[in-house]
């Protein structure tokens, strides 16, 4: 039944990308913004002769909505761990044969082989991993980022100088960490508490946006922003010297992004070539040097830049827990959507 509705949707969704060519030697990559180094793409194009086209999105939700609407023409997309789970269940991904037999698979850290979201390594290869929390301009703020309270209950320095992601995925989990409740809660009372915290926070929020984060911090429009560890490090490299990523004692929300092939991909061989290419330590290091996130290829350390080795925003203190986001069931997801819609209206 649902399939029929989806096919109907295809009519609209596919128009946008229908023009993409069918010939091999092309790769249509759909990735997060600020997440794909030009250098890496050029190296891949030079080594393989495959021509890469890049399109970007701003959240896992956007990616999922796009795939659900029947958009075809993408050969590789980069969802986080729990969205890989959802996309597999929704039948949006293509099984990729022989990932474990790829020449560069041997470089992948044992701990990240056959991960819980892809136990048979049938769909995904690692991209980058990191965490979500908040970051602040140390020179204009008197706190030290030791608690999520600073994020959810802004003081005089941060009120109306605070910005939050424009998608519920990480923000609601941060609220759970702050309140000490579990991710994917099915308890309306716990979700009501999450809603209350976020409504209280909203009184001091200047903007909800997941794009242009470092620009906003740089100009001083805000002094505190929901942020990702690596991207805040990129902000430091771009000249916001006092940009500090907070590792609050309640913990940070961990994520692990993977390369997967959506159904309807037309250049599967190119996609596989890119998956294999990226698992090589030298190439993975290129990516980490650009995006400033950790990766699952231990040997890539040899190729990391000094900047990356000394990046302070991505060093996780030993006593701060990293809790990975999960795919929630229908009931929990329904509650999350209700909370978010209420916060947004």
């Amino acid at each position: 039944m649902k399939k029929f509705a989806k096919t109907m949707m295809l009519a609209i969704g596919s128009v946008a990308v229908a023009a993409s060519a069918q010939a091999s030697g092309k790769l249509n990559l759909y990735n997060w913004t600020d997440y794909t180094p030009t250098e890496l793409i050029e190296k891949f194009e030079k080594e393989t002769g495959i021509e890469v086209t890049l399109d970007t999105y701003d959240s896992n939700e956007t990616l999922l909505a796009k795939l659900q609407s029947g958009a075809t023409g993408y050969d590789l997309v980069v969802p986080s761990q729990h969205f890989v789970d959802i996309m597999v269940k929704e039948g949006l991904l293509m099984k990729v044969d022989g990932i474990a037999d790829m020449p560069n698979y041997k470089y992948v850290d044992e701990r990240f082989r056959n991960p819980s979201w892809d136990p048979e390594q049938a769909y995904s290869t690692p991209y980058q991993m990191g965490s979500a929390s908040f970051a602040y301009r140390a020179n204009s703020y008197d706190g030290n980022g030791s608690s999520l309270k600073e994020f959810f209950e802004p003081n005089a320095a941060t009120c109306n100088k605070l910005a939050v992601f424009k998608s519920p995925d990480e923000v609601i989990n941060m609220a759970h960490l702050y309140l000490g409740s579990d991710f994917c809660s099915e308890d309306p009372k716990e979700m009501q508490a999450v809603l209350d915290v976020m409504m209280k926070q909203k009184e001091c929020v200047k903007v909800y946006s997941s794009e242009g984060i470092n620009d906003r911090l740089k100009s001083g429009d805000v002094v505190m922003h929901a942020h990702w560890d690596g991207f805040s490090q990129v902000g430091v490299w771009e000249g916001v010297d006092d940009l500090t990523y907070a590792y609050p004692k309640e913990g940070v929300v961990g994520w692990f992004d993977s390369l997967v092939v959506p159904n309807g991909a037309q250049n599967v061989e190119s996609a596989k070539a890119f998956m294999n290419f990226l698992m090589h330590p030298e190439n993975m290091a290129l990516l980490s040097n650009f995006a400033a996130y950790a990766n699952a290829i231990p040997e890539s350390v040899k190729y990391l830049s000094d900047d990356m080795k000394n990046a302070k925003n991505i060093q996780v203190p030993a006593d701060v827990p990293v809790k990975f986001g999960q795919a929630c069931n229908a009931k929990a997801q329904g509650l999350i959507d209700k909370v978010w819609t209420r916060v947004m209206q």
Partner: peptide, 24 residues
């Protein structure tokens, strides 16, 4: 008119949790 009809039809269906609709 086509997309408009699709939109009208979707508005009268049941939502699926992860996006998309059930034909009910």
């Amino acid at each position: 008119i086509g997309p408009l009809l699709i939109m009208a039809a979707v508005s009268l269906m049941e939502a699926n949790v992860y996006g998309g609709v059930h034909l009910r």
